[in-house]
Amino acid sequence: MGNQFDINFMVTIALKAAIRYVPITLELALIPFVIGTILGTIIALVRLYNIKYISKILQVIVVIIKGVPVVLQLLIVYFAVLQCFDSVAKTLHLSIRAKNINSVYIGLVALSFFATAYISEAIRGALTAVKKGQYEAGYSVGLTKVQTLRQIILPQAIPVAMPMLCSNLIGLIKGSSLVFMISVTDLLNGALITANSNYKFLEAYVAAAIVYWILCIVIEKISYVLERKFYSFNGR
């Protein structure tokens, strides 16, 4: 194990490898984020308007997903898919087998569940933060529930939700780093592979860290700008 930190290796080889796989990491973070936002909004609305049985079921599901580490969710989904897929595929007469699936898709599914639960909480919190009087005023001028939501509530809820959504996205980027456990080559794994032959793992990890750090900083800056834009009615 070399005592000197090999900056040259880190920058020329490890860093380059990490950057090459950034698209995979972004995929693993953004796709669940989008899915999570769409489904999360629906879940948040269902829970906000307390729709008979579905609301309670969703509450239980969200609590469970929030209470189990993301690593475990990833691993459980992975092994569950591996075990069940073959039997399901046989019954449907499909020719693909579990070992042919690219694990990326499994990662996407697991991270999507994770994202949906957390984002639905963020949106629900934002919707309840908008004062009840805004809902009542909307109804009293003759708007329907949907119209009130669209014209009055959501525009006020989005800027409230943005900081939490930003931190959820950052959480997804960091969570995506765990897919190396299910043999997906993302930016972390990509950097590590370069160190397999020369054992310069420290340099590889530092290279990966730098790329993650920059990604997160960029996201924070974008979120800050968007927040200012959406909150313009507050005279900020």
Partner: peptide, 17 residues
């Protein structure tokens, strides 16, 4: 900023190595 912007598994191995 660094600690909040990098995955904990990366931090762990950086400390370890």
């Amino acid at each position: 900023s660094f600690v909040r912007g990098t995955p904990i598994i990366v931090q762990m191995f950086i400390v370890y190595y």
